[in-house]
């Protein structure tokens, strides 16, 4: 006779494996494009334009933007994985397979997050490998690198989940990435230090949560950051706690999934 925990372990593994298998099966659409796009960023911004710019925090422009671009890839891919997978399962109605099964909502959520984190990190690693063709990468603090990438992927997987729950059409799953996520990412200190911004824009930038993730990751790689690390981790954990509670409420109440 299996215990609840053993059954839940099997259920969680099934969801996680299914999610990883889903994006692995279509690797040409999920893994390869971010590598090509980021390689173009490295060539255009890092080499062509960057070579004309002055160093930032003592780093060449190429070295400075590499962590930000890796983080951008992790953010967009963890988000994209969950939003497309969960909305797809709603659209094809196979979310019902999970809803009728004896799986606690938290486990369904963690299963989807696992898929998002896996894709975010795998694509992040691939982009990092691409970056080695353009610059000599260094790691200042491996613990910070691993923790902030994982936490960021978790956070944006949940953001993707919320988008998928509210989405009523395939258009709705592209609106948030286009009009919210991309601007926030570009303005999150990937291409510049916020210390270069004039007063009001510097202060406004501090309300952008992505700034904290990019800077923490940059600290992990290069040892420089515009933001205090404790504050950055505080912001990330707070957002994770808020989004997790909200996602769980959405699943339990059946918002967007049950009538």
């Amino acid at each position: 006779m299996m215990s609840h925990w053993q059954r839940y372990r099997v259920a969680f593994t099934t969801i996680a494996v299914k999610e990883v298998r889903r994006f692995s099966r279509i690797w040409i659409q999920t893994i390869v494009p971010p590598m090509i796009t980021t390689a173009l960023y490295f060539v255009i911004f890092g080499q062509m334009i960057g070579s004309q710019l002055a160093p930032i925090d003592g780093m060449t422009y190429m070295d400075y933007i590499v962590p930000g671009l890796i983080m951008m890839t992790i953010i967009t891919n963890s988000y994209a994985n969950v939003v497309s997978s969960f909305y797809g399962s709603k659209f094809g109605r196979f979310i019902e397979e999970l809803l009728i099964s004896p799986i606690p909502p938290s486990l369904i959520l963690i299963g989807y997050i696992t898929g998002g984190v896996a894709r975010g990190l795998i694509v992040g690693i691939m982009v990092t490998l691409v970056a080695t063709f353009f610059t000599d990468l260094q790691v200042h603090n491996i613990f910070v690198v691993l923790s902030v990438t994982t936490l960021t992927a978790i956070l944006f997987s949940m953001a993707g989940f919320i988008n998928a729950v509210y989405a009523k059409s395939f258009d709705d799953i592209t609106l948030i990435p286009t009009f919210v996520l991309t601007p926030l990412t570009y303005l999150g200190g990937i291409f510049y230090s916020i210390e270069m911004l004039p007063g009001i824009w510097h202060d406004i930038s501090l309300f952008n949560p992505i700034l904290y993730m990019v800077n923490t990751f940059r600290y992990g790689m290069l040892g420089v950051s515009d933001i205090d690390l404790t504050l950055a981790y505080g912001v990330i954990f707070t957002f994770i706690a808020i989004l997790y509670s909200f996602c769980l409420w959405l699943l339990k109440s059946g918002k967007g999934t049950r009538s």
């Binding site: 299996m2 053993q6 099997v10 593994t13 969801i15 094809g92």
Partner: peptide, 23 residues
Amino acid sequence: FNFNQFEPVEEIVLNQAGYYGVP
């Protein structure tokens, strides 16, 4: 029909067993 049409038949059935915690 409420299964993933792009998954193999066997995988659909095995996944459902997994959701119910069947080893």
